[in-house]
């Protein structure tokens, strides 16, 4: 049992983090808490993709280790089993930058909401909206 859990511990971590983020987004009433949950959710997905790129058995980071200038112009045989998969890394690099951009826009919207309603709790905002009929 323990061996079974340990053989995929990265995937279990990803599942637990995704559940925590989803719970914060759905169950918490404070808007900043919802945003924190969204950040946790995003890094959980990124962790999943990075875990796919790992190869066991002597693989290293995807950077060519030999002399690149001497290699230019010649045919070089590179064994794919010696390097991790670079494609998930590239996609997640883009995803991190985009996630920070979305967080910035969401925080700007949050400041506007606070200016208008003077609170950040979801239930109070809904109550004010019902009372004023807006």
């Amino acid at each position: 049992m323990l061996e079974y859990v340990l053989s995929k511990y990265n995937f279990w971590t990803y599942a637990i983090l995704l559940i925590i983020g989803l719970y914060a987004m759905v169950g918490k009433k404070n808007l900043v808490k919802k945003l924190i949950g969204m950040n946790i959710f995003q890094s959980a997905v990124i962790l999943f993709y990075i875990s796919i790129g790992v190869k066991k058995g002597g693989a290293t980071v995807p950077i060519f280790l030999g002399d690149a200038h001497a290699a230019h112009g010649h045919e070089i045989i590179i064994d794919a089993a010696h390097y991790f998969i670079p494609l998930p890394h590239v996609l997640m690099l883009t995803a991190i930058v985009v996630s920070v951009a979305t967080t910035g826009v969401a925080l700007a919207v949050l400041i506007l909401i606070y200016k208008r309603y003077k609170t950040l709790e979801m239930d109070e905002i809904m109550k004010i909206r019902q009372d004023t009929g807006a």
């Binding site: 995807p62 950077i63 060519f64 690149a68 290699a71 230019h72 045919e75 070089i76 045989i77 590179i78 794919a80 390097y83 998969i85 670079p86 494609l87 890394h89 590239v90 690099l93």
Partner: peptide
């Protein structure tokens, strides 16, 4: 992914495969 790993150095002359892609 093996295609990218094998061809990145020859086609783009960049040792770092992540930045090459």
């Amino acid at each position: 992914s093996p295609k990218y790993i094998q061809e990145a150095l020859g086609k783009t002359a960049t040792p770092n495969m992540v930045t090459a892609v």
